[in-house]
Design a protein around this nucleic acid. Structure first.
Length: 550
RNA sequence: UGGGCUAUGGCCAAGUGGUUAAGGCAUCGGACUUUGACUCCGUGACCGAAGGUUCGACUCCUUCUAGCCCAACCA
C-alpha cells in the first residue's frame, strides 16, 4: 500500500523516539498464530504495524507464532500470507517463532541459572489452585525452592524428553502475590509431545506465548511491538522477560484498541458452526468479514486500507458500522468500474410500434464520470426487459419516477417509451407490458421538447446473457440480544439469489467489478461458469427512494 | 471481589486549560441530474455523573457509575 499520512498516539510515540535519537528506523511485526483465518479486525493490526514501519524508514516482518503445535496447522500459513499480501502489506522477512526455539531454550536456561525460573511438579489443577484468584493471593509452589542445580538438571531433562507430557513445567519466579495474575510465576515451558509443522519431532517442550513473544521481538530487533489492548496486562511480563533474559535489543510493546464491527460474526467457533451447518458457503463466504470473504465479495483492499486509516487508532472500544467501509468501497469503485445494465427481476416490455426483427445498436458510455473507460454499443429491439419494480399499473404519486400506464419514461441510452397495455395471466400476475416509443426522443439526439417521468434501464430481450446475482444481508438478526442462542438468530434470508439478464457484451472474469446501473457494485464470483455468470453484490448504490408504506 | 484499560451527538472519531467542541458515516431537508446514483448545500453535543481547583475545564483533582480485558501447561 502506498504511504499515507497517519496521526495517532502510537505515531506520536514513534516520532518522539526518532526525534530523541532512540531509534533511527522502526521495525514492526505482525505475529499471527497459524490457527485460523484473518478477518477485518486483524486488518487494523496488520496495517498499523505495517504503516508505522514504512512511514518511519523501516520494515515490517511477518512472523508466525507457531509455539503451540496442537492448535496450529501449516495450511493456515498460506492463506494468511495470501490475505496479507492482498491487503497490500509487504513483509521484509517471513519468519516463524520456531526459528528461535534454540535460542529461547538457551534463554530459559539462563533464567534457571540466575535462579529466576524453576521446574514445578504440580499438576495443572494444583497450579491453578496455588495461583489463587482475583481476591485470593497466590501461594508459592512447594517446588519453587529448588536449587539452581536441581532446576537446571530437571529443565534439561524436560528438554531431553525424560518426563511425561504435563508432568512438569518451567515457571518464571516473579511474584505469586502480584495483583497482576500474569506475574504469578507464569509458566514459560510445557512438555508436549506433538508433531510441529516446522520442527517436526525435534522438541518435546514448547515455550509459552508470554515467554516466546518478547524474545522473538528482541531477536528481530523489533522497535515497537504493536498489539491489542488485551495484552496490556502482559506488558510487565514482556519487559521482565526482555530484561532478565538479557536481550541485547529492547523492543517496546504498545497496545491499541481492537477494531470491532457491529453485527459481525468473528469468532472461529461461530464461523465454523456456520460453515459446518452450510449456513455459509465457506470461510470465504461474502457475508463474512474474513479477509477472504471480503475479497470474494469484491471489496477492494484499498478501501479496507482507507477504512482502517480513517478510523484512527483509539483505545476505546466501540462497534464500528460496516456502512463506513461501504462508503470507501463506493468511493473506490465509482470511477474504476464500468457501468452496465442488468435486470435482476425481469419484466418484458414490448414496444409495439418498433419494427419486428430489427435491432439497432446505441451508444453508451462505460462510465459517465470517467471517459477513459470508453464507450460501447448496446442493442435495442422490439422486446426488452426492465426491472419489475420499475413498473406500476397506476402512478401512485408525484414522486414516482418510473414507468406506469400512460406514463412516459426514458429507457436510458435509448428512447422514451409510454406504457399503454398490461398483459396478465389468470392470477393477475403481470406477464408483459406493451408500450410505444417515440423515435424523436432518441438519446443523444438533443431532444428536449418534453421531460420523461424518469429514467430507467433495460436489457435487450434477446441479445443478452442470463446471469445469477447474489445479494447479501446481515447473517445474524438481533445480534446484540444475548438471550437467544447464536444459531437461532441466523437470518434465513441473508443470501438472496436473483436470476436475470445482463448485457451480453461484458467480459466475465472472476473478480472484475461492474456497477450495475441503478443497482449497485458487483463483482464476478468464483462460482461463475461459461453457462451462467455469477455476480456478487459488493455493495448497493445509495438510494433515497423510499416506497411509501401503504 | 484485586489489577489493567476505556467513557465526546444514532455510529466512528479529533481535541491534552481560553476555539462558535474538527471531520467521516448514518439520518432528514434542498439544488442538480439520461443512474431516485454521483456532486453540491443545509441539518444535530450542556463532552458518563456529581463535586472541586481556576478569571476560565472536554481538557487538572476527588468521588461515583457503566463497559471491556485478566484467574489455559492458548495466543
Amino acid at each position: 500500500m502506498k504511504k499515507m499520512e497517519i496521526n495517532h498516539f502510537i505515531n506520536t510515540i514513534i516520532e518522539e523516539d526518532i526525534k530523541s535519537g532512540k531509534h533511527s528506523k522502526v521495525i514492526t511485526r505482525f505475529p499471527p498464530e497459524p490457527s485460523g483465518s484473518l478477518h477485518l479486525g486483524h486488518a487494523r493490526a496488520i496495517i498499523t504495524n505495517y504503516t508505522m514501519a514504512i512511514n518511519h524508514n523501516g520494515y515490517f516482518n511477518l512472523r508466525f507464532d507457531d509455539t503451540n503445535p496442537v492448535k496450529e496447522d501449516a495450511a493456515f500459513v498460506e492463506t494468511i500470507k495470501k490475505d496479507i499480501e492482498w491487503l497490500g502489506c509487504h513483509w521484509e522477512n517471513l519468519l516463524f517463532a520456531s526459528d528461535y526455539f534454540n535460542e529461547m531454550y538457551e534463554r530459559a536456561l539462563l533464567l534457571v541459572r540466575k535462579g529466576m525460573a524453576y521446574v514445578d511438579d504440580l499438576s495443572a489443577d494444583e497450579i491453578t489452585e496455588y495461583r489463587g484468584d482475583f481476591t485470593t493471593l497466590g501461594k508459592p509452589s512447594p517446588y519453587s525452592g529448588r536449587t539452581i542445580e536441581e532446576n537446571e538438571e530437571l529443565f534439561i531433562g524436560m528438554k531431553k524428553g525424560k518426563y511425561k507430557d504435563g508432568s512438569r513445567v518451567l515457571r518464571a519466579k516473579i511474584d505469586v502475590t502480584s495483583p497482576n495474575m500474569n506475574m504469578r510465576d507464569p509458566i514459560i515451558y510445557r512438555i508436549q509431545r506433538a508433531h510441529h509443522q516446522n520442527t517436526g519431532d525435534e522438541w518435546c517442550i514448547y515455550p509459552m506465548y508470554d515467554f516466546a513473544h518478547p524474545i522473538e521481538d528482541a531477536i528481530e530487533g523489533i522497535t515497537h511491538s504493536l498489539c491489542s489492548l488485551e495484552f496490556e496486562d502482559h506488558r510487565p511480563l514482556y519487559d521482565w522477560v526482555v530484561k532478565h533474559c538479557e536481550m541485547p535489543e529492547i523492543p517496546r510493546q504498545i497496545e491499541f484498541g481492537k477494531l470491532k464491527i457491529a453485527g459481525a460474526v468473528i469468532g472461529k467457533r461461530h464461523i465454523k458452526q456456520l460453515v459446518d451447518n452450510n449456513v455459509v458457503m465457506g470461510w470465504d463466504d461474502p457475508r463474512l468479514i474474513t479477509l477472504s470473504g471480503l475479497r470474494r465479495r469484491g471489496i477492494p483492499s484499498q478501501s479496507i486500507q482507507n477504512f482502517i486509516i480513517s478510523l484512527g487508532l483509539p483505545k476505546s472500544q466501540g462497534d464500528t458500522e460496516l456502512d463506513m467501509l461501504y462508503t470507501f468501497v463506493r468511493d473506490h469503485l465509482k470511477l474504476e468500474s464500468p457501468r452496465v445494465n442488468a435486470v435482476l427481476d425481469p419484466l418484458k416490455l414490448v414496444i409495439t410500434n418498433y419494427p419486428e426483427g430489427e435491432v439497432e445498436y446505441l451508444d453508451a458510455e462505460n462510465n459517465r464520470e470517467n471517459e477513459a473507460l470508453g464507450t460501447r454499443k448496446i442493442p435495442f429491439s422490439r422486446e426488452v426487459y426492465i426491472e419489475r419494480e420499475d413498473f406500476i399499473e397506476v402512478k401512485p404519486n408525484k414522486k414516482w419516477k418510473r414507468l406506469a400506464l400512460d406514463i412516459e419514461v426514458r429507457l436510458m441510452h435509448a428512447y422514451f417509451v409510454k406504457a399503454n397495455k398490461i398483459i396478465k395471466d389468470e392470477d393477475g400476475n403481470i406477464l408483459e407490458v406493451h408500450c410505444t416509443y417515440d423515435k424523436e426522443t432518441k438519446s443523444g439526439s438533443g431532444f428536449t421538447d418534453r421531460k420523461p417521468n424518469g429514467n430507467i434501464h433495460y436489457v435487450d430481450g434477446s441479445i443478452n446473457r442470463k446471469a445469477e446475482f447474489r445479494l447479501f444481508e446481515d447473517l445474524v438478526l438481533d445480534f446484540e440480544n444475548k438471550d437467544i442462542p447464536f444459531i437461532d438468530k441466523i437470518n434465513p434470508d441473508s443470501l438472496i439469489i436473483k436470476n436475470g439478464y445482463i448485457e451480453e457484451s461484458i467480459n466475465i472474469k472472476e473478480g472484475s467489478h461492474y456497477q450495475l446501473t441503478r443497482n449497485g457494485y458487483y463483482s464476478v464470483d468464483k462460482d461463475t461458469t461459461e453457462a451462467l455468470p455469477v455476480f456478487n453484490r459488493t455493495v448497493s448504490l445509495r438510494s433515497s427512494f423510499k416506497p411509501k408504506a401503504k
